[in-house]
Nucleic acid binder design. Structure first.
Lengths: 146, 146
DNA sequence: AAGAAAAAGCAACTATGTTGCAAAATAACA
DNA sequence: TGTTATTTTGCAACATAGTTGCTTTTTCTT
């Protein structure tokens, strides 16, 4: 990556942190950068591997938690019990997520993607049940692997 | 539970194990019984607590894995990263699950239910993506808690 | 009932996640 | 810009979750 692009990204990251009234620290910058560079979602393990040489495990956990609380990233549940995280779109704000898109897990490359243009469908529930949040995860082959 | 009902359940359990060519052991019987008694899904922790005084942790892990492999139970992913297990309907067989129903997590009682009558909707994916399995988890209030 | 096969139990280990506290970095402000 | 207050980090210790190899016990087969 060019020096200029790095500087630009640094500004973008700093702005994102400021907007969420978070202090700007090395670990937060590094972890946000990982998300911005990555098209899909990241599992905690990925982040620890990629950023972990520089930062303590605990810091990674706490940083991710902070980002989730602030609505900067959101979690994606998967069948193999490994939570993945992905950047939220602008509409998300603290304590008020708008994650009405579905998630896609590629069984070939194992990447997880947010399909931001695919909204979760209405689900008709049996009598007596009332729906809150609806989570849809589709497994299949992504466009890069087909 | 009456003695007669227990005997009947024992027969049902033994049959289920035999049909899946599994040997009939105390732990398998006990764990299956837990699933049959329980309306909702069970997390590993629940099972370890309820059956764990009698059985080794490792046995519980291996038994659940065996049941999943045979298609006797299936897993339900949840947002809090705790896999839950529930009995499969008859249509499931080894390596070939027919879990086209959705799952419901009650935010009040925290129970997880299979809504067997609610089938997963068709999802229209962007160009290039091909869908395999679709997993839908709805959060809300169940009919017992409303 | 005896031998073969499968499963359970045990021990040890790895991975994952959490908490309290002291040290270091960041922010606020004179 | 330097000083203090606040926030965040790193460390240590702990708690929980899950795995693997191996021996003993149980179940199955005949």
């Amino acid at each position: 990556m060019s020096k200029q692009l790095l500087l630009q990204m640094d500004k973008q990251i700093a702005g994102l942190l400021k907007r969420n009234s978070l202090s700007i620290t090395d670990s937060r910058k590094k972890i946000l950068q990982l998300f911005l560079e990555q098209p899909g979602a990241l599992a905690h393990g990925d982040i620890e591997t990629k950023a972990g040489e520089k930062f303590d495990r605990v810091t990674v956990y706490r940083t991710l938690q902070t980002f989730v609380d602030k609505g900067i990233i959101h979690t994606i549940p998967t069948a193999d019990n490994s939570i993945r995280y992905a950047l939220c779109k602008d509409a998300c704000s603290e304590g008020h997520h708008h994650d009405h898109h579905i998630h896609f897990v590629c069984t070939n490359c194992t990447n997880t993607y947010c399909l931001d243009d695919v909204v979760t469908p209405e689900i008709k529930l049996p009598k007596g049940y009332s729906a809150g949040h609806v989570e849809v995860v589709v497994e299949g082959i992504c466009k890069n692997c087909k």
